[in-house]
């Protein structure tokens, strides 16, 4: 019959036997892999610190824990917390059957343990396999998610961008309006429409028209701030949304500069192209609490008034212009 000590050694490579004086009388072979020399003859509580239950200060305390699972660590290896079942050895000492529990992944890494350091019936190696397999599969999953997310972002950006000018498109306006509605900041909306653009298309062809639109986009970019939103809402119409900017003098200067730059003739394919622009301006301050749709509609009405009062003008919305195009006083409308 195999001796008890041999049996323990074969079956439980991580056990510790403690005699009644509190000295270690024997231990499993794998314990020496944890960076400690032969522990035999040393005092158990000097080598190990019992974390739970707390207040284990003597051999008697330890013996009281029999049949219970305690948590402990080697004082020399404080990073790895072990679990141990306390067994009464029937000779006033105890046998501690230790295991790494979930710390096995760290322990294997820290001490270069091999499959031989675990009991063959121990699931430690399976746990390590699973941990590694899961990390590998998870990495593949993350990889896919990252690529899908990139593709989604790219598609979203494309969906909100005007392909010709690189400005935002009409679809982006909803999101912008929504953000403005949420924010507490004041803002202005400039509605810009090119004058004589149809003539360019009709006379010089669509390639010339496209060049003009890109030229206008460049002028808008050059004259606006980083936080201003530039939108081509279709055809030859643009929106400039300026968060925080409601100063009439500055807005007038901005409008005049943009109109002046657009009105400067430029060469295309040997032809001299001359266009201009009209701008209607709505301020959030004019219609507090009515929301960005209202401000945008006001800019539209002001643009209409600007067109009526001659090309190359900018007009601020005022109450007199009314809330719909139909409200516009005849005197205003007739002035065109």
């Amino acid at each position: 019959m195999i001796s008890t000590a041999d049996l323990l050694q074969r079956l439980r490579p991580l056990h510790v036997c403690v005699g009644k004086t509190g000295h270690i009388s024997g231990h499993g072979r794998s314990l020496t892999k944890l960076g400690v020399e032969d522990l035999r003859g040393k005092r158990f509580l000097e080598e190990f610190e019992v974390l739970r239950p707390s207040a284990i200060g003597s051999m008697a305390d330890l013996a009281d824990c029999q049949e219970r699972v305690i948590r402990l660590r080697l004082r020399r290896v404080p990073d790895i917390v072990l679990r141990g079942l306390v067994i009464n050895d029937q000779a006033d000492g105890i046998i501690l059957d230790l295991s790494f529990g979930i710390a096995v992944v760290d322990a294997v890494r820290a001490f270069d343990l091999t499959a031989q350091d675990f009991s063959p019936s121990d699931l430690a190696v399976e746990l390590l396999f699973l941990q590694e397999a899961k990390s590998t599969a998870m990495a593949a999953s993350f990889n896919l998610n990252a690529r899908l997310d990139d593709a989604r972002l790219a598609a979203e950006t494309r969906a909100l961008t005007d392909g010709l000018t690189g400005l935002h498109n009409r679809r982006a306006v909803d999101g912008v309006m929504h953000r403005l509605e949420q924010s507490q900041t004041v803002y202005s909306v400039l509605h810009l429409d090119l004058d004589l653009f149809k003539d360019v298309n009709d006379t010089f062809g669509h390639a010339a028209g496209d060049t003009v639109l890109k030229h206008v986009a460049a002028i808008l970019r050059r004259n606006t701030r980083k936080d201003d939103l530039l939108v081509r809402i279709g055809g030859d119409e643009f929106l400039i949304i300026c968060p925080g900017l409601v100063d009439r003098t500055r807005l007038a200067t901005l409008s005049e500069t943009v109109i002046r730059d657009i009105s400067a003739p430029f060469e295309f394919d040997g032809h001299r192209i001359a266009i201009s622009a009209s701008i209607g301006i709505g301020l959030s301050l004019d219609v507090p609490h009515l929301g960005p749709e209202r401000v945008s509609d006001n800019a539209d009405i002001a643009l209409y008034a600007a067109k009526r009062s001659g090309r190359g003008q900018h007009v601020f919305w005022t109450k007199e212009l009314g809330l719909t195009l139909a409200d516009m006083p005849l005197s205003q409308a007739r002035r065109s």
Binding site: V108, D112, L113, T114, A115, V125, S135, T136, A137, A139
Partner: peptide, 12 residues
């Protein structure tokens, strides 16, 4: 072969 990976395993 060591039980602990030498560096983090990656998947393609």
């Amino acid at each position: 072969f060591s039980l602990a990976p030498q560096n983090a395993a990656t998947a393609s």
